[in-house]
Design a protein around this nucleic acid. Structure first.
Lengths: 249, 249
DNA sequence: ACGCATAATTGATCCAGGTCAATGCGCTGA
DNA sequence: TCAGCGCATTGACCTGGATCAATTATGCGT
């Protein structure tokens, strides 16, 4: 666990527990958020067997790189990740941030190759689901397939929302929306909706929202001046989420 | 067929043939692009039975509305559609355009409700796939499930690309990318990659790309002045797609 | 074929947010 | 403890594309 001491993981307790023991899905605290939902216990045991529990990634380490053959879908177990797509000229877009229980790599099924790069934002770990095995299981566990589709659909729906954000929202609306989205996701995971760590850099946030770093920085200070938030480097608390909600448009 | 005479459907021949006969998947000219790919012929016959072939929609008519219960996934049979998401304040974002063989409504699986509105851009028709039935079939036809996931994945991948476009590209790059994307899709469907109809309005294009109508209009005239395209109201031809490719960045 | 509504073009002006530049802060490692 | 470096903040200025305002096509209904 030494590597965990020099960072501030978002989900320290989870990381501690689940790094140390390769605990079964049934006992995983993410169960409620994850794939196995709705599976019977013998099916669950089957699933358990094919899941590879990874050793963990350190800040900046890649889970997979763009244009690499697709083999597995990953579920974040602890920590957090970002995914990016890049153009040949070097420009890149942060397409998403991923927290425990969330799936990474589903956009690679069609092309059979990852079309984005996934990097850890802090010390993190994942469960690896080899897609071929997953397919085999689909025959005997239709519920699993439905669950998978549901996951894909959820991300699709989220992406449409993001398209609206990128295409139609002002800088202020973008940042307010982003903060509340994080807040909601932390709450879903049993953490404070009010206070949390921004594990990604200002640059990552700006990039993701289609803004310049400077704009994000200015907005943070303005939100703070207006008493909406309190922010100190990576630690943020939402002081007036009602007003933030209004700002989302 | 009277309703088809006063419009210029993108896929007139398809519309003619497939409106009149409820032809089976096996004989459908979209087979290659559509769901049944990889199914055995007896499976195909099964699938055929659950597919409802709709009567057709006229320009502006809604296939489904936002916040309506989810029942079916739709495949465009002829014509074209757009999907939009809207905010409470009235702003809306065109999240996609859909052509024959493409799937609409997959982002509704998770929420079990359509989170976008789909409208016909011209006289169009769809195949309706009741999701419940599709699920039942999944048990006996795992291949179908895989195919569905593949479709979802493809759209996901496309959305990431669009996020890059919205977040990082200039107006010029956006429009060039859009035109080439249409071109490629028409080519995939056996139509000219060089000359086609823009069934959507300038407003729809602008909205989709996160631009103002005026900007799109100006770019069209500029592209025309520079000899890249030739455009006359809805009819466009790409005169220099190599240079357009360069403009995409 | 005519007239009205809607869509598209074109021009003039403006501003949100980007870019450039300088400074400040906080890790990290010796 | 402190130097060095990457990240973040702050200020000054600039610009791509939005907005506003006419004008001109297009197409639809009668």
């Amino acid at each position: 666990m030494a590597q965990l001491n020099n960072v501030t993981p978002l989900f320290k307790d989870l990381a501690k527990v689940e790094h140390e023991h390769n605990i079964a899905c049934r006992e995983c605290s993410l169960y409620r958020l994850c794939l196995p939902l709705g599976l019977h216990s013998n099916d669950l045991a089957q699933l358990d067997k094919i899941i590879k529990r990874s050793q963990g990634f350190t800040r900046g380490e890649a889970l997979f790189a763009s244009d690499t053959p697709f083999k597995s879908i990953f579920v974040v177990r602890s920590g957090s990740f970002k995914t990016t797509v890049q153009a040949s000229d070097g420009r890149e877009q942060v397409t998403g941030f991923y927290f425990p229980g969330e799936f990474i790599g589903m956009d690679a099924i069609y092309e059979q190759a990852y079309k984005s790069t996934a990097k850890a934002l802090e010390s993190s770990s994942v469960c690896e689901l080899p897609f071929e095995k997953l397919q085999e299981f689909g025959t005997t566990m239709p519920q699993l397939q439905v669950q998978m589709m549901s996951r894909l659909s959820k991300e699709l729906s989220g992406d449409k929302t993001l398209m609206f954000l990128l295409g139609k929202k002002t800088a202020e609306e973008k940042l307010a929306t982003f903060l509340l989205s994080l807040s909601r996701r932390f709450q879903d995971r049993g953490f404070s909706a009010r206070e949390f760590q921004l594990t990604m850099s200002r640059g990552d946030i700006a990039n993701h929202l289609g803004l310049a770093v400077e704009t994000v920085s200015r907005l943070f200070t303005r939100f703070q001046d207006e008493g909406l938030i309190s922010i100190q480097s990576k630690a943020i608390s939402l002081l007036d989420s009602d007003k933030l909600k209004q700002l989302c448009g």
